[in-house]
Nucleic acid binder design. Structure first.
Length: 270
DNA sequence: AACTCATGCGAAT
DNA sequence: TTCGCCTGAGTTT
């Protein structure tokens, strides 16, 4: 489930539980054990989100890095500390020793889970474009990079060097909302259009953080009455759909940027 | 119970 | 361009 909204939501939720506290850091599975020792017992100053990356700022001066990839998941336990089951890469424990509000957070299946230096964090950021969810984001950087490329816009939106945090669902949904064909080259999109795409990225991601899930549709467009939860399969306009919500024509699923890209050939003409 | 596929991405080829 | 990571929900047997 991880596009940028998930990462920012985790940083916020876990930060509220853990920031400013001394933590036990371990790796029941073992693969993170050596790195865990470096920060075990240290105070976590804050958890930072950037695109799809999480950074853990420790009082030791170390900076932890987590990337969930496709499979990574956190699980939060309050009050109880369950026996580790299966491959838990990282376990963070707060409050067990000092009797304050106990919290245990387990991480399994991440692509990356390491402890490094501020310089290593900087080198990761150097490979990322601006993140629409961050205050320090400079949209012009993304707009000019995309506007200079001949690659398809559908591939550029997935490229984290263009902008950080968009994944396969938001890419399809953003392009649908603006009626843009995913194969249109970046340099055939005028700056005004790219500016609007940026705004849409920001508002869609922000809505994702609020809801803690991806919902890009207006409920009136999909005929879900107020007060009723929008099912996952109806929370998008084109992603994994067979039929266009707007015009009823068949949705096309093509491979762009190594991922299946959904679009409506009628609402998003070439 | 087995199998498929996925909201990701870096390494190998 | 393909492979591998390595979890879990949903589908098929």
């Amino acid at each position: 489930m991880p596009e940028g909204h998930t990462i920012h939501r985790i940083a916020r939720d876990h930060g509220r539980l853990l920031n400013g506290r001394a933590l036990r850091v371990s790796s029941p599975q073992g693969r993170f054990a050596t790195d865990a020792e470096r920060v075990d017992g240290a105070m976590l100053e804050r958890i930072e989100a950037y695109g799809k990356h999480l950074f853990y700022w420790w009082s030791t001066g170390d900076v932890g890095h987590v990337h969930l990839g496709l499979f990574g998941k956190y699980r939060v336990h309050r009050d109880d500390v369950p026996e580790p089951r299966g491959a838990i890469r990282m376990r963070l424990i707060a409050g067990m020793a000092d009797g304050t509000d106990p919290v245990t957070i387990d991480l399994r299946g991440p692509t990356a889970c390491t402890v490094g230096s501020p310089e290593e964090r900087a080198s990761i950021l150097a490979r990322l474009g601006p993140d629409p969810l961050r205050r320090d984001a400079d949209p012009e950087q993304a707009i000019s990079r995309i506007g200079r490329s001949r690659r398809p816009i559908g591939a550029l939106l997935l490229d984290q060097q263009m902008l950080a945090g968009i994944g396969n669902v938001y890419r399809a949904e953003m392009l649908f909302v603006h009626g843009i064909h995913p194969e249109r080259p970046g340099n055939r999109c005028d700056p005004a259009m790219l500016g609007e795409l940026w705004s849409t990225a920001r508002s869609m991601l922000a809505a994702g953080v609020r809801a803690n899930r991806i919902v890009t549709v207006d409920r009136d467009d999909v005929g879900i009455p107020r007060g009723k939860r929008i099912p996952r399969a109806e929370a998008t306009y084109v992603y994994r759909r067979d039929v266009c919500v707007r015009c009823g024509d068949a949705i096309a699923a093509t491979e762009i940027g190594n991922r299946t890209c959904y679009h409506c050939p009628t609402c998003q003409p070439a």
